[in-house]
């Protein structure tokens, strides 16, 4: 963890709904995302330019992750749909799935993301570029040693990163991404952002 001061906010729907809470970690000082360049399976680039002017939610994962990643992406899809009902259309976050496993995923990473929502973006790229974004979002991944068949597991952060329209990391969200509570968190985050800017 980098030495950033963070405020932990837990939004609870009701005092009884212990399980149904969204865990959002809002950074006290937004952290700028440095230069990086990734691309989708057709070579379309994804760079800090794409973070400008819109909210972005970035999730790290890998395609050979049939248990947790589809669950996360499915929940994010519900959460973003819910958010779309609460914020202006141009404030609905773009969702970007970043594969940390380019060797296996480079050819199919966009198809994978599109499966969960027609507007989700799937990108990957050179190891140093992935690492730049991983580090900038205070995230983590590790490729495990391959077994005798050459098959390897990938460990990765389960949290997603929320980037503001100026390209600053502003919050992290922990799964399971309950739709209503995640939408509530994102809407509040945007209100706080606009208040700060006005």
């Amino acid at each position: 963890m980098r030495a950033v001061v963070i405020a932990i906010g837990v939004w609870v729907a009701s005092s009884l709904a212990v399980a149904a809470q969204v865990q959002g970690v809002e950074l006290d000082t937004p952290e700028p995302i440095p230069e990086f360049s990734l691309s989708d399976q057709d070579g379309q680039t994804f760079t800090p330019d794409d973070l400008e002017g819109n909210w972005t939610v970035i999730m790290f994962g890998f395609n050979s992750c049939p248990d947790v990643c589809p669950f996360t992406l499915g929940n994010l899809e519900h959460a973003i749909s819910e958010t779309a009902m609460r914020v202006r259309p141009d404030n609905v976050p773009n969702v970007v799935f970043v594969s940390v496993d380019p060797d296996r995923d480079a050819e199919v990473v966009s198809d994978y993301a599109l499966y969960f929502h027609p507007e989700f973006l799937g990108v990957t790229g050179a190891r140093d570029q992935i690492d730049t974004l991983v580090e900038a979002t205070d995230s983590f991944y590790r490729l495990m040693p391959p077994d005798s068949n050459g098959y390897y597991e990938v460990q990765h952060s389960s949290a997603v990163s929320v980037i503001d329209p100026e390209g600053n990391l502003r919050a992290k969200l922990q799964p399971p991404f309950d739709a209503g509570l995640t939408a509530e968190f994102l809407a509040r985050l945007q209100i706080a952002y606009r208040r700060e800017k006005s």
């Binding site: 395609n63 050979s64 049939p66 248990d67 589809p70 199919v108 994978y112 499966y115």
Partner: peptide, 12 residues
């Protein structure tokens, strides 16, 4: 078995 993206290299 849950449905998976057509290009998925692993199912569950």
């Amino acid at each position: 078995v849950p449905m998976a993206p057509p290009t998925a290299m692993a199912h569950v």
